[in-house]
Simulated scan of single mutants.
Amino acid sequence: MEQPTFIRFTLAGEQRSRFGLINKHGVVDLSQRFASRWTSLDDMIADNALSIVAAEAAEMAADIAIDAIRYEPPLISPGKIICIGVNYPNRDAEYQDNKESAAYPSLFIRFPESLTGHQQPLLRPPESEQLDYEGEIVLVIGKAGRRIAQSDALNHIAALTLGNEGTVRDWVRHSKFNVTQGKNFYRSGAIGPGLVPYHDASQIADIRLTTRVNGETRQDDRTCNMTFSFAWIIHYVSTFIPLQVGDIIFTGTPTGAGARLNPPQWLKPGDVVEVSAEGLGTLRNAVRDEE
């Protein structure tokens, strides 16, 4: 991790999830140290406490070794999971066929069960071999609001993380105006490794986002090239639905997904997908068939 990162995790032989912070020493078990104050990262976000605890725990001695934990998706009970489609110019060009770019993004939702954690397997369903990857930067909302002004929008972010917006391509084409099925196969996508507290716009204004498959770079772009900015996305989404604490927004993926390669290259068991961004670390998942 490039900076202190909040995680949710389990230990071998335990069913209950813990939450902690990875610093340069290892994993600080915040669920033990702060048990009387919070029971989850969800609670810490609701109390606007991430930055305070990050500063306090940055130099704490580790309670657990990193290789002893099993990562879980950071939030136990995320709110809405909203995904922005076609949000990088080259990606947009893949869909436009020389038409003008759309004035608004495509939006769709994911369900929590469609996502797994860092270093956990992405599941290829038996119904299709067309499992694809989409590396993205993900926003976690920490301040509720409706019709949020762009000038104030970034102040509503509690934390940042990474996502692999895994997609079963043939199932997104089952209907002309509906992609929900192909975007929600069980554990077909991932989120993590953990939550990096949001401080200011420089964290996301112009950072590099890449996706590698088996070490080969497939996606590579910068956030300064996004068609719809982070602030604009928050403003736009909050216009039609109130954003609540714990809502999650996947902000779009660059060009280079497997579906657009010639020939298409679908993920198969044994493949390893790594989504990386400056300051946010790397989200890593191997692919296996769903049993």
Rank of each mutant, 00 (worst) to 15 (best):
Gly246Tyr: 13
Ala205Gln: 15
Arg16Ser: 11
Gly256Cys: 00
Lys268Trp: 12
Arg147Gly: 09
Leu123Asp: 11
Thr211Gln: 05
Ile233Ala: 14
Leu261Trp: 03
Glu72Pro: 03
Leu162Gly: 09
Val237Met: 02
Val140Gln: 05
Met1Ile: 14
Arg169Trp: 14
Arg16Asn: 11
Val196Leu: 09
Gly194Ile: 09
Ala65Tyr: 02
Pro263Asp: 08
Leu107Tyr: 15
Ala93Val: 08
Arg124Ile: 10
Ile191Val: 15
Arg70Asn: 14
Glu291Lys: 10
Ser238Leu: 04
Glu290Asn: 01
Gly258Asp: 05
Arg110Cys: 02
Lys99Ile: 00
Ile66Lys: 12
Lys176Asn: 02
Pro4Gly: 01
Val273Met: 10
Glu165Asn: 12
Asp152His: 09
Pro264Val: 01
Leu123Pro: 09
Ser40His: 14
Val179Asp: 03
Thr239Phe: 01
Ser238Ile: 04
Pro89Met: 10
Ala103Asn: 12
Ile81Asp: 09
Ala46Arg: 14
Asn164Trp: 10
Arg284Gln: 01
Pro112Lys: 02
Tyr186Asn: 14
Ile52His: 10
Lys143Val: 00
Gly145Val: 08
Ala205Lys: 15
Ala55Leu: 02
Asp206Met: 06
Arg173Pro: 01
His118Lys: 07
Thr39Val: 05
Thr116Val: 05
Met1Asp: 05
Gly194Ala: 12
Pro254Tyr: 02
Lys24His: 13
Ser101Thr: 04
Leu267His: 15
Asn214Phe: 01
Val138Cys: 02
Gln15Asp: 15
Gln244Pro: 01
Ile207Met: 06
Leu75Gln: 10
Thr211Phe: 05
Arg187Tyr: 07
Arg284Val: 08
Gly256Ser: 00
Pro197Cys: 10
Arg284Ile: 07
Val168Gln: 13
Gly252Leu: 11
Tyr186Gly: 06
Ala68Cys: 13
Arg187Glu: 15
Gly117Thr: 03
Leu195Glu: 06
Val138Gln: 03
Leu160Asn: 03
Thr211Gly: 04
Leu21Trp: 03
Asp289Val: 00
Val179Glu: 04
Ser229Cys: 03
Glu291Tyr: 07
Val168Trp: 11
Glu129Leu: 14
Ala12His: 09
Glu94Tyr: 11
Asn184Met: 09
Thr239Gln: 04
Cys83Lys: 04
Met1Trp: 06
Pro126Gly: 05
His25Ser: 06
Asp29Gln: 08
Ala57Lys: 08
Asp67Thr: 15
His199Tyr: 08
